[in-house]
Amino acid sequence: MSLDLHFILFLLLRMAIAAAFVVTASVITERSGPVIGALIATLPVSAGPSYVFLAIDHDAAFIAQGALASLPINAATIFMCLTYVMLAQRRGMLVSCASAFAVWIVLASIIRQFDWSLTAGLAANLIAFGICIPLLAGYRHVKMPLVARRWYDVPMRAVLVATLVAIVVSTSSWVGPRISGIIAIFPVVFSSMMVILHPRIGGPPTAAVLANSAWGLLGFGTAIAVMHVAVVQFGSAIGLCLALGTCVTWNLTLWGIGRRAMHKARQAS
């Protein structure tokens, strides 16, 4: 088998695996309501496979540098969510989504101009989430209507995430760890949710999923920081596992807190 054919087949396999992760997570999201949907959406179902495949091709130093670039981008993502949530209450999908994407692109373009340290990346996240979480709180509680899936939903999501993985894997060697880290956490899951759900169930219910994602995204940022530190100390495999464990533990904790709050509210009523 030629080297080019081997690369193409391995790339297609990577794309298929990543697409399967995202499609599964987004289907669960549609059926579980905005709270559970947000917890699923903020798991590393898109960034995780991208980083795993980067770790196969590059050393721990590359992954650590990529994580440093990803960390402040997480702050850009929460501002993207805030933009969409605010506009989706009264505006259509085109205006809401285009504005949200524009905010992410502008912020990501600014962020990539600087060399970020771990401390600076964490500070950017704390400031961003300190601003956005209170502003998003009022949009979290909206009932999710029943979603009737259309034939193109699954292929569309699969193509989105598979394309992302192809770009990350194919370009990482010449764009370097910083750009790879930025591309790796492009918000594919949120993007597909906005584009697919908004015209079918309306802006406010779709926005509720993103509004509920704020605390989960904060945990995702924490996981990126854990990955950076752990990869340097223990290598890529352990670092990626610890990052995944951080995300899962964080979201399970949020789910448990939410369940207790609902139980107390029912008892009080």
Rank of each mutant, 00 (worst) to 15 (best):
A128G: 10
S109W: 10
A55T: 03
D115E: 14
A76C: 13
G37S: 02
L9K: 11
V142D: 03
L136D: 03
I78T: 12
L126E: 04
I56W: 07
L135I: 11
P49Q: 06
A55G: 08
F53R: 02
I28E: 00
P145D: 05
G121H: 10
I8H: 09
L126I: 15
A16N: 05
I131Y: 00
R90S: 14
L126S: 10
L122W: 05
S46I: 03
G92M: 09
G48A: 09
L71V: 11
L87G: 07
P134K: 06
A137E: 03
R14E: 03
V23R: 04
I127L: 15
D115M: 08
D57W: 06
V103A: 07
A19K: 02
Y139M: 02
L43N: 06
L9D: 04
A20M: 04
R31I: 08
Q89C: 11
A102S: 15
S50T: 13
A64R: 13
R112A: 01
V52P: 05
A69C: 08
L71S: 09
A38I: 05
A25F: 04
F101V: 14
M80R: 14
V85S: 04
V23M: 09
F101M: 15
P49S: 07
F114C: 05
L136M: 13
V103W: 06
L43G: 02
V95W: 12
L11K: 06
E30L: 13
V85Y: 07
A41V: 13
T24Y: 03
P44C: 04
V27T: 07
R140P: 00
N74K: 03
A76M: 08
F10G: 03
A25V: 09
L87D: 07
I40P: 01
V45M: 15
I36E: 04
A20L: 09
R112K: 12
R112Q: 14
A123R: 00
D59R: 10
V95G: 05
A67Y: 11
S117D: 00
V23I: 15
A60H: 09
G37P: 11
A102F: 12
A108M: 09
P134G: 09
A120K: 04
G48L: 05
Y51N: 03
V23S: 07
Y51P: 02
M144L: 10
T24D: 01
G37K: 11
S32G: 12
F101E: 09
I111Q: 11
I78M: 06
S96I: 13
Y51H: 00
A128E: 02
Q89L: 04
A38M: 11
M144N: 15
I56L: 14
L122V: 14
I110E: 00
T83I: 10
G48P: 13
N74S: 12
A41N: 15
F7T: 09
D115A: 14
P134Q: 06
R150T: 11
T42Y: 01
I73N: 07
L13H: 06
W104C: 11
A60Q: 07
C97I: 12
A60I: 02
I36L: 15
L39N: 00
G66H: 07
W116C: 06
R91Q: 14
F53N: 01
A137C: 01
L135S: 05
N125G: 08
N74Q: 15
I73R: 03
A69M: 12
I40T: 11
I8Q: 06
R149Q: 10
I73M: 06
S96G: 13
A64W: 11
V147G: 00
A20P: 02
